Deep mutational scan, measured.
Amino acid sequence: MSGIALSRLAQERKAWRKDHPFGFVAVPTKNPDGTMNLMNWECAIPGKKGTPWEGGLFKLRMLFKDDYPSSPPKCKFEPPLFHPNVYPSGTVCLSILEEDKDWRPAITIKQILLGIQELLNEPNIQDPAQAEAYTIYCQNRVEYEKRVRAQAKKFAPS
């Protein structure tokens, strides 16, 4: 494992614990031996107030490669969400998460999670990743928002 990646992720964890947006979660997972795995984080993004996503808490896994922060983490909703920019596998399609697009090593975990929260309610229809959600979003916004509200209710924190 890269010392650069681990040191950056340790800084990220410290900064997150000191200050993070209300309702968001970002925690490194534990290895079988109980030690912390900084390369694999369990996160959760709350649906934004005043949107059909409100009330939901959407679980996301963030996986970092050894060359982080040169390369972005892979962000994957578990379980996958109904959304035009979420692949059926759950992987998020967002330009700041793509090395050859808008990724920059200075982007923080907090910025990534806030960017994904923004994307939930403002899909990028130029870059669809899920045919069904994309089609319904474009053709029947009322039905799309109904499905999103049902999903938010399903993923409401207990």
Rank of each mutant, 00 (worst) to 15 (best):
P157H: 07
F22Y: 10
D127N: 02
A129V: 02
F77N: 00
K74S: 15
Q117P: 06
Y137N: 01
V148F: 00
K154A: 11
T91A: 15
I107N: 14
F82L: 02
E118S: 05
K154V: 13
Y144D: 10
P46L: 06
N124K: 03
L63V: 14
V142S: 14
Q117R: 09
A150V: 10
K14R: 15
F58S: 02
V86E: 01
Q117D: 05
P123F: 03
Y134N: 04
L113T: 11
Y144S: 00
E143Y: 09
K49A: 13
P123E: 01
L38P: 09
D66R: 02
V25A: 10
S89A: 14
L57M: 07
S71L: 05
N31S: 13
N121T: 09
P52N: 15
G34D: 09
G90E: 01
D67E: 13
V142G: 12
I125N: 08
I112A: 08
P157A: 13
H83R: 01
Q130L: 09
Y68Q: 01
Y68C: 05
L60I: 13
Y134F: 07
I116T: 11
Y68F: 08
M36I: 09
K153R: 13
Q130P: 00
Y87H: 04
K74H: 15
R141K: 10
K14T: 06
G90W: 02
C75R: 01
E145K: 05
I96G: 05
V25M: 10
Y137S: 04
I125T: 09
E145V: 12
N140T: 02
Y87D: 03
D33H: 02
I107S: 14
K49E: 14
M39V: 13
F77I: 05
Q111V: 14
I125S: 09
V92L: 15
L120P: 03
A106P: 05
R61W: 06
Q139K: 10
S2L: 02
E42V: 12
K146L: 08
G34I: 06
E132D: 13
L113V: 12
K110E: 09
D66V: 05
A131Y: 12
N37Y: 13
C93R: 03
F155L: 08
C75P: 14
I96V: 14
W53C: 03
L81N: 00
A152D: 01
P32T: 12
S7I: 06
D67W: 06
K59N: 12
F82N: 01
L113I: 12
P84S: 00
N85S: 12
E132L: 06
I116R: 03
I136T: 08
V142A: 09
E12G: 03
E132V: 07
L57F: 07
V142E: 15
W16K: 07
N124R: 04
T51A: 03
V148L: 05
S158L: 11
A150T: 11
T91S: 15
V148G: 02
D127F: 05
I112M: 15
K65E: 15
I116V: 11
G3R: 05
G115K: 00
T108S: 15
H20P: 00
N121L: 04
V142H: 12
E99D: 15
I112T: 15
T108A: 15
E122K: 06
A131P: 11
